[in-house]
Design a protein around this nucleic acid. Structure first.
Length: 370
DNA sequence: AAGCCGGGGTT
DNA sequence: AACCCAGGCTT
């Protein structure tokens, strides 16, 4: 067990970095320039929590309307814990990364039962809640409870890369650990929440990815990258793999004024969301594509249909996938009992289901055609 | 360590 | 078109 050496001691700040002046100047700037955001009206841990989950990999301006709506529908931990999962998913529709919504509700139920409805303020306890990782734990603990914990997100990684002229690959988990150690040494007494938010605010407004606005930066004097003129070369980040193409045949099966929809599995991509039935195929002729689709409808749902005409093509890109969807208008012919994860619904009923954006595009087309 | 998991804004 | 966003979970 002697193989692991303690690395924390190697994460020391440069001698020329003036911690006190930096914290003072950054906080002064934050006090004057911070944005007026809906989750900053108080320090209710639940409100902070919901905001931090929504803000994971999601821009502030995107989150705002979702946050307002979500807090109206689920104003407390208990309200969220007691809500039907489908309602939570619907409130999350379009926001992406839907496991965030499921984990948030699961964790709310945990907080209600295990912690009496009070979001825990201990690092060990809050870190066990679903959907709360190192960043979110630090954010809630510092912002809501003023605990001196780091909250290192993409903004903070970028700011520290430039500030301390770090050339570590910020895509690697080890780099986040390193930055957490550094931030921990810089958090000012009694202002952990504001300090963490100030670092993120700086990254969002001034120390932006492409062309940092160094001339208006409140901590210009402390920035080692700017001193060397290499601020635009940082941070270093490994390239992501391009999305993998997936070819899909999609069926809009009409039966009177209703269409066939099915619910996706509880796990995996777009878990639990509703969609038009579709099958993956690399077939390259229209007849084979159509037959593959009709065979799928028959075997998967026990419904017989015929293809009337091609309706539209939809392309949709995810982080790791690129969907090429060919949508066919079909007429229902015959069928038996549907499985429990499939239903014929009216266009009005569709609006109460949570749909991926790719399938919302099809709904819009159907509405415009009728 | 690498892959999976959405959708949209910026440059 | 490429990059990135107040990341976390699974393998």
């Amino acid at each position: 067990m002697a193989g692991k050496q303690k690395k924390a001691l190697t994460y020391t700040l440069p001698e020329e970095f003036h911690v006190f002046g930096f914290s003072r100047d950054l906080l002064a700037w934050y006090d004057g320039q911070k944005r007026d955001l809906p989750w900053r009206i108080n320090r209710d841990p639940y409100r902070i929590w919901v905001s931090e989950i929504m803000l994971q990999q999601t821009r502030v301006e995107t989150v705002k309307p979702y946050y307002q709506n979500f807090m109206e529908k689920f104003p407390t931990v208990e309200a969220l814990a007691d809500a039907p999962e489908e309602e939570v998913l619907k409130a999350w529709e379009g926001l992406g990364y839907y496991s965030r919504a499921r984990n948030l509700q699961s964790a709310a139920r945990e907080v209600k039962t295990r912690y009496g409805g009070v979001v825990p303020d201990k690092p060990d306890e809050i870190a066990t809640l679903k959907g709360i990782g190192p960043y979110t734990a630090g954010a809630i603990l510092s912002i809501a409870y003023e605990k001196p914990e780091p909250a290192v997100d993409g903004n903070v990684m970028r700011v520290f890369s430039r500030l301390l002229l770090m050339t570590d690959d910020i895509a690697k988990p080890a780099t986040r650990i390193k930055v957490e150690h550094l931030v921990r040494q810089v958090i000012p007494e009694g202002r952990a929440g504001d300090f963490n938010q100030a670092l993120m605010e700086l990254g969002a407004l001034v120390c932006v990815p492409r062309t940092p606005q160094c001339l208006t930066c409140p901590v210009f004097d402390y920035c080692l990258a700017r001193r060397e003129g290499v601020q635009e070369e940082l941070p270093v980040k490994g390239k992501a793999k391009p999305p993998r193409p997936v070819n899909l045949q999609v069926a809009v099966v009409r039966r009177g004024d209703r269409v066939l929809m099915n619910r996706r599995p509880e796990q995996g991509l777009l878990a639990g969301m509703w969609q038009f039935p579709m099958v993956e195929t690399d077939a390259d002729t229209p007849s084979v594509k159509q037959q593959t689709l009709l065979d799928g409808l028959s075997s998967r749902f026990g419904q017989d249909a015929e293809v009337l005409e091609p309706l539209m093509e939809v392309q949709h890109t995810f982080s790791h996938l690129h969907w090429n969807m060919e949508v066919w208008l079909c007429d229902w012919i015959d069928g038996g009992e549907l499985p429990s994860d499939a239903r014929f619904v009216t266009l009005e009923e569709i609006s109460s289901l949570a749909l991926p954006v790719a399938h919302q595009k099809i709904v819009e087309k159907l509405k415009s055609d009728r």
